[in-house]
């Protein structure tokens, strides 16, 4: 009964949405702001990767918020799971030697790749989030491959917090130097070089570490509890 009812509603909704959307012309995006970014982006921010310049400079405040959301996710998960007390650990079958060795071997490379991505965020596709996620996947691999080895939760937490604080401090430095929060106060440098784009690489380092720590922390909490 309920299923039929919801199906009918869904069909009606789908029909309605279809009619609504069919009147919206897709593929012709309004680009009021976009064109400006493409034209002036490199000049104003010094970042070759326009996406990065938008994410970290034009809309840096959003990024701060997004970083906070991730922080929240790990914090909330920790808060909820901290009180649940059922540590009935299943029997862990030890992974094979080949897997363990491969994991150990791969782990630093993955970390390095992640670091590369967030360091070059202003030059090539990628950035803090992507780099952080890759770092976290390195940790995931490590947890799967060598389940005995653990990293202290608190170090993840410390890195998370420090990353967030670093972001804010950079923003506040911009505030003191230029009068605007998150103002790009450092010299823009020459485009297409590593040391360019002012505060963008610095923030990306902070974000990369933070996101990596957060993701790894979430996985760690979950595995810890399972």
């Amino acid at each position: 009964m309920r299923k039929i009812f919801s199906l009918i509603i869904l069909i009606i909704l789908a029909l309605g949405v279809y009619i609504c959307i069919s009147e919206i012309p897709f593929g012709k995006p309004g680009t009021a702001v976009g064109n400006y970014y493409i034209e002036k982006g490199i000049e104003e921010t010094g970042a070759v990767n326009i996406v990065t310049s938008i994410v970290l400079n034009y809309r840096g405040f959003d990024t701060l918020g997004e970083v906070t959301i991730l922080f929240l996710a790990s914090l909330g998960l920790g808060a909820i799971l901290a009180t649940v007390q059922n540590k009935t650990r299943g029997v862990i079958t030890p992974p094979s030697l080949i897997l363990t060795t491969a994991c150990r071997f791969l782990f630093p490379f993955i970390l390095m790749f992640g670091a590369y991505i967030f360091l070059h965020g202003h030059l090539t596709p990628g950035g803090g989030f992507q780099g952080g996620a890759i770092i976290a996947s390195g940790f995931l691999l490590r947890y799967l491959g060598c389940p005995q080895k653990r990293i202290r939760q608190s170090s993840f937490v410390a890195i998370e917090s420090l990353g967030g604080i670093a972001f804010i401090i950079i923003g506040l430095l911009g505030f003191t130097a230029g009068g605007f929060f998150l103002f790009n106060f450092l010299p823009k440098g020459v485009a297409n070089t590593l040391l360019s784009a002012g505060i963008i690489p610095l923030i990306y380092i902070a974000i990369g570490l933070k996101v990596g720590a957060e993701m790894a922390g979430i996985i760690d909490t979950l595995i810890e509890e399972s």
Binding site: Y37, Y58, F61
Partner: peptide, 13 residues
């Protein structure tokens, strides 16, 4: 009105 990052409204936040 506070500009964030020093960019005027339609472009920045």
């Amino acid at each position: 009105i506070v500009f964030l990052g020093g960019f005027p409204p339609p472009f920045g936040i």
